[in-house]
């Protein structure tokens, strides 16, 4: 464990070096991360205009605030691990990970954090440009702004642990991409990526709240938009902590079982 901080530092340097090798793909990545919230933002602004200026408590400036904050939260919480694991299992790079005296999740976490830190200035600049164009309105009480920081970090932890655990499905099946598609459709609706959860029908809202999805993205966005009371906020932070605990336990169990399968069959 002594060497973990050093590992994170070195992984940061490695990720930086890899990213700088592909400057063009960095631009493409930025555009894709901008485009999705932008599309929803334009659509919902049009809908609210058609509905007489407001839908479910969101006017044009409200939607602008929602999707710009969502873009920032999404930047902090998203992972790409589910697209990588099948390759790792099939092509043997997992074997190398298993030969190393460090749990492979550390390399993934370090890599994820590194790319986030490296791309943060880009996404902040993009948010500033969007804010200048769409003029969002934010009514955030100071306590909510303060609570936003732990909320977004916990949201990242929930999503990272959950998606890392789900990625381990690659140990059992070669059809991971089908599973991934189901997951990402659920994420799109239930985590508030497509629309604020408050605009969705109550059963979907309930599902989003019971399942981990709301806590991976929507919750910190709602918080910063000033939509949540103190009690709801504390409950939310508690729900995040509970999901993190559950995911850690699950991850350990699934990882152990997955490695057992992997080392029984070989790759």
């Amino acid at each position: 464990m002594r060497s973990l901080p050093a590992l994170y530092v070195q992984q940061f340097k490695t990720s930086l070096a890899v990213m700088l090798q592909y400057r063009a793909s960095l631009i493409i990545w930025l555009i894709s991360h901008l485009l999705e919230p932008l599309v929803y933002l334009v659509v919902w602004t049009a809908v609210s205009a058609a509905q007489g200026g407001s839908v479910g408590g969101y006017d044009a400036a409200g939607f602008a605030a929602y999707f710009i904050v969502l873009m920032l939260v999404n930047h902090v919480t998203y992972t790409w691990i589910m697209w990588e694991y099948e390759y790792r299992v099939r092509h043997g790079s997992l074997s190398f990970a298993l030969l190393r005296p460090v749990h492979p999740i550390h390399a993934d976490l370090a890599d994820n954090l590194s790319s986030k830190i490296i791309t943060l200035p880009l996404i902040l600049a993009a948010a500033a440009v969007l804010a200048a164009i769409f003029r969002p309105s934010l009514h955030t009480p100071p306590w909510a702004a303060a609570a936003f920081v732990p909320a977004v970090l916990l949201a990242f932890a929930v999503r990272f642990l959950m998606e890392w655990t789900l990625a381990l499905a690659a140990f059992w099946t070669t059809r991971v991409s089908a599973l991934n598609r189901v997951y990402f459709v659920a994420l799109l609706f239930l985590s508030g990526q497509m629309a604020p959860l408050s605009l969705l029908p109550p059963p979907i809202r309930l599902a989003a709240t019971i399942l981990p999805f709301r806590w991976t993205t929507s919750f910190p966005v709602e918080l910063l938009l000033g939509k949540l009371g103190l009690e709801e906020t504390l409950l939310g932070l508690g729900a995040q902590a509970a999901w993190i605990l559950a995911c850690v336990v699950l991850l350990r169990l699934v990882w152990r079982a997955g490695v057992r399968v992997f080392t029984a069959v070989g790759a």
Binding site: S3, V9, Q10, K13, T14, A17, Y22, G92
Partner: peptide, 30 residues
Amino acid sequence: QITLVMGQRAQLVWDIPAADSFELNRAIYG
């Protein structure tokens, strides 16, 4: 205390100089 070298499989990071991969191994193995 062990290592396994598989001739047809690669552990080095493809896109960066080997020196950087070596540094990463230094950190991994402490």
